[in-house]
Simulated assay, not measured.
Amino acid sequence: MNFLRIYLGESDHCGHEPVYKHIVKLCYEHGLKGVTVLKGVMGFGEKHHVHRVDFLTLSEDLPIVIEVVDENEKIRKLIEEIKKCNFDGLVVYWDVSTLRIKKEAL
């Protein structure tokens, strides 16, 4: 299994849609088991421009993190599709061991 994490900004687009929405669609279309999109409240990247939300500042480019855990081959194919999007971001992935925990029936 691979764990994939993608760091990008809320305002990044691929064509006419936000990159994070495009990546979720790709995950669905490629049959990945699931994807989670997390919206940050503060962060900065390589350019050291701080993005944050507070009372006086409403950033229109908050940090977004996308996480996917799936089979190595599916993750590698997804990465090839993500490379086609033109955005400033960071994609990291690594091998993981997984343990699925299920709620017991009463």
Rank of each mutant, 00 (worst) to 15 (best):
F44S: 08
E29I: 03
G45V: 12
S59H: 03
I6W: 06
K25D: 12
H51M: 11
L99P: 00
D54I: 04
R100Q: 04
E29R: 12
V69M: 13
V92L: 03
V91P: 05
G34L: 08
E81D: 00
C27H: 06
E71Q: 03
A105F: 02
E60R: 11
V37S: 09
P18H: 04
L26S: 03
V19E: 12
S97T: 10
V37C: 14
G43W: 02
H13E: 06
L99M: 06
F87T: 00
D88M: 10
T36Q: 05
K47F: 15
L58V: 05
N86Y: 10
T98D: 00
L90T: 04
H51Y: 10
T57R: 12
D54V: 02
V37E: 13
L56T: 13
K39S: 03
I75V: 13
K39V: 00
P18M: 01
V91I: 15
D61I: 08
V37Y: 09
H51F: 11
I64D: 00
V91G: 04
Y20W: 15
E17K: 07
E67P: 03
P63D: 02
L78Y: 06
K83W: 01
G43Y: 03
L38V: 00
V68M: 11
E80N: 15
G15N: 08
K83D: 01
L4W: 04
E46K: 14
D95E: 14
V53K: 15
K102M: 08
H22G: 06
L32D: 03
V37A: 14
K21E: 15
D54M: 01
I66V: 04
L26I: 02
V35H: 00
K21F: 07
V19Q: 09
R76H: 12
D95S: 09
K21S: 15
H30S: 14
D61S: 05
V91A: 06
H16L: 08
V69E: 12
V65P: 09
G43R: 01
L56F: 14
G34E: 10
I64S: 01
K102E: 14
H49T: 13
K21R: 15
H49P: 05
V53H: 15
D88I: 14
D88L: 14
C27Q: 07
G9S: 02
H48W: 06
R100H: 08
R100N: 07
L106P: 11
G89L: 01
I82R: 05
G31E: 06
F3Q: 10
N86A: 13
V92F: 00
L8I: 06
K103Q: 10
V69G: 08
Y20N: 14
H13W: 01
K47W: 14
G15E: 08
W94T: 01
R5W: 04
E104F: 07
G40K: 02
I82N: 08
R52P: 08
Y93D: 09
